[in-house]
């Protein structure tokens, strides 16, 4: 495959999986004729028909519940949240129905369901369109949560999510859809539960995901020039967290910085800090540093917005503070 934009990598994943398995279908607002708010499903309805690329009325809780019912009875729905934030309206269906129903039913039903769409803080989209739902959903039993960050992992992970027999919330970031990468020609599927080591290093473990991965790799360029050797881990799986990869890294670096776009309170980072303390406290040479978004509704104003989320300079500074100077 030639150089592929991230949104087209996602589209290819859906297209391939729909061709492979006729029980896979897409539903959501404007996924059909319009092609999806970020064109992830562009023209798929002409290939697969209007039932398999189902334009729904604007009724998030009901079409999400409909997808759960379809999944319980043998189909494999992919819900697109036009903006992931809108799916707050479907919180009950995602938590009680998608997440908990298999357990509550004593294993009577499985719910192979993907809930995907654009999230995160974009450019001046205002508070309601700048949500990070992973923080809200991480406590729901039965859900898996995955955040893609590159065209390569977007495609391989989405294919895996579609094939998974469990409900998977699949996070895309509004500012990453136009990332470009050359993808393999051959089909590939990536594991949903494995973190990706983006850069190997020995000084400090930086745990991050989604768009912040790119802030971290930008910061790393500066840091490497200054003589630091950070290890960068893209979590990929936000639930469950890949503590094998995380632990292996901590046992090597003994220092951890978390860089996330979540709000600080109750975010993925909060869970990471607690779990690292539970599992790897003896390995730590310094308290875990957590860089997260401010606990405020994301402001519209560009300057205020950039002050709300973590910037690369803060990452550089955090590494400088936590890693002892070598003489």
């Amino acid at each position: 495959m030639a150089e592929t934009l991230l949104f087209n990598a996602l589209r290819a994943a859906i297209d391939e999986e729909m061709a492979r398995d006729p029980s896979v279908f897409v539903l959501g607002e404007d996924v059909g004729h319009y092609g999806g708010s970020y064109k992830v499903t562009k023209d798929l309805y002409t290939k697969y028909g209007e039932l398999r690329v189902l334009d729904t009325p604007i009724a998030e809780n009901s079409f999400t519940g409909l997808a759960v019912g379809a999944a319980m009875t043998g189909l494999r729905p992919i819900i697109e949240g036009m903006n992931m934030g809108f799916l707050l309206l479907a919180f009950n269906q995602i938590a009680n129905n998608a997440g908990m129903l298999r357990y509550t039913s004593g294993g009577n039903y499985k719910i192979p369901l993907v809930i995907r769409g654009p999230g995160g803080v974009g450019r001046q989209l205002g508070a309601e369109h700048s949500q990070r739902l992973e923080a809200y959903f991480q406590g729901v039993p039965g859900l898996k949560m995955v955040a893609c960050s590159t065209p390569y992992n977007a495609k391989g992970l989405l294919k895996a999510a579609i094939r998974d027999d469990n409900p998977v919330i699949f996070f895309e970031h509004v500012l990453l859809y136009n990332l470009k990468e050359t993808l393999p020609d051959d089909e590939y599927v990536l594991p949903l539960d494995k973190a990706e080591t983006v850069r190997k290093g020995k000084d400090v473990t930086i745990l991050t995901y989604s768009r912040m991965r790119h802030h971290v790799t930008n910061a790393a360029k500066t840091l490497v020039q200054e003589g630091y050797d950070p290890e960068i881990i893209d979590l990929i799986s936000l639930k469950p967290l890949d503590f094998d990869t995380i632990g292996e890294s901590i046992r090597k670096t003994h220092r951890v910085i978390i860089v996330e776009e979540c709000m600080k309170t109750g975010g993925i980072g909060a869970e990471l800090v607690a779990s690292i303390n539970d599992r790897f406290f003896d390995e730590l040479d310094a308290p875990v540093i957590r860089l997260a978004s401010q606990d405020i509704p994301t402001p519209y104003n560009g300057t205020l917005e950039s002050l709300t989320i973590v910037q690369p300079a803060q990452i550089v500074e955090a590494v400088q503070n936590i890693v002892p100077l070598r003489v």
Binding site: N61, S62, F63, T64, G65, L66, A67, V68, G69, A70, A71, M72, T73, Q93, N97
Partner: peptide, 8 residues
């Protein structure tokens, strides 16, 4: 909605 999904 779940029942509607089964019918769908």
């Amino acid at each position: 909605p779940v029942a509607t999904g089964a019918a769908f």
